[in-house]
């Protein structure tokens, strides 16, 4: 292990992560690193194992191999403790709390229950609109306004995905795993979303852009989005990690082109 200071902001690292569903190997020896401030792409056709990778890293499915967050192994932790140590995610299908308002969705992530919370709820003093700032900030980061008090299930799919991102950011995040967050956005919204992703990674939440933002793993089908926004791109195929490199390398790499892009093009929708 390296010394402590270097590893405190080492981000997420998986080593030979392998997931089996019965006979199917959904992830085989996947080693991916996401450093703070970096946007890492993960692409691959449907069923390649992208969601499985996120599920394994965040503790929603059994896996073999090692998962390190800032140098500390976390694969034995239950999902909520992984979240507490700074690993957050969104879900491909949104998975908002449909019967709660957008603000409450974010507050769930920011203010957790427990015995101490219970005691404070019952007997402590309470501020009128605690957490309101946090909600407004998180929504501003993803570019959503005027929906604070809407029920989550009444949002459009695109808005739900954005609230999902805001929820993953609320309460602090070291590494953010985004599972197809842009599906459901039109191409204009997609472009806007891409620049927001960059801004978030650069710590743009506070407008500082000083590079202390979270590392982001971005899964998407939109090749132009991924190639334009990511520092590093990883490709999965049938659970195998067939490529890792810069977008420029990806565009010309024969395996990627053959397996996924079909033709060496600037941008295609796959």
């Amino acid at each position: 292990m390296s010394d402590a200071p270097a590893s405190t902001r080492a981000g997420l690292e998986t080593r030979s992560l392998t997931v089996r569903y019965g006979g199917l190997v959904a992830n085989s020896d996947v080693s991916i690193t996401v450093r703070p401030g970096e946007v890492v792409g993960l692409i691959g056709p449907n069923g390649a194992g992208k969601t499985t990778f996120v599920d394994a890293v965040t503790g929603f499915t059994q896996c073999e191999g090692e998962i390190l967050l800032n140098g500390t192994p976390i694969q034995e932790l239950p999902p909520h403790e992984r979240r507490a140590s700074g690993l957050s995610r969104t879900w491909q299908s949104g998975e908002l709390f449909g019967n709660l308002s957008v603000a409450e969705n974010l507050l769930v992530a920011a203010r957790k229950g427990g015995w101490r919370t219970l005691a404070r709820d019952l007997f402590g003093r309470r501020k009128a609109d605690a957490g309101r700032d946090l909600v407004e900030n998180a929504l501003a980061v993803v570019g959503l306004e005027g929906v604070t008090d809407t029920l989550a299930r009444d949002l459009t799919l695109g808005q739900q995905k954005l609230v999902g991102v805001a929820r993953a950011l609320a309460g602090g995040s070291e590494v953010l795993l985004l599972d197809e967050p842009a599906a459901g956005l039109d191409s204009m919204e997609s472009q806007a979303f891409a620049s927001r992703v960059r801004a978030i990674a650069q710590g743009g939440e506070n407008g500082a852009g000083d590079g202390d933002g979270p590392g982001i793993l971005l899964i998407d089908h939109d090749m132009s989005l991924v190639l334009s926004v990511c520092d590093v791109v990883n490709v999965l195929e049938f659970g195998k990690h067939i490529f890792s490199g810069t977008p420029a390398e990806a565009r010309t790499d024969p395996t990627v082109v053959a397996a996924y892009l079909g033709a060496p093009v600037e941008a295609t929708h796959v």
């Binding site: 929603f60 998975e95 957790k112 929820r167 309460g171």
Partner: peptide
């Protein structure tokens, strides 16, 4: 699931 991924025990 979503609750657990939001850090709820």
């Amino acid at each position: 699931r979503a609750a657990a991924s939001s850090g709820i025990n």
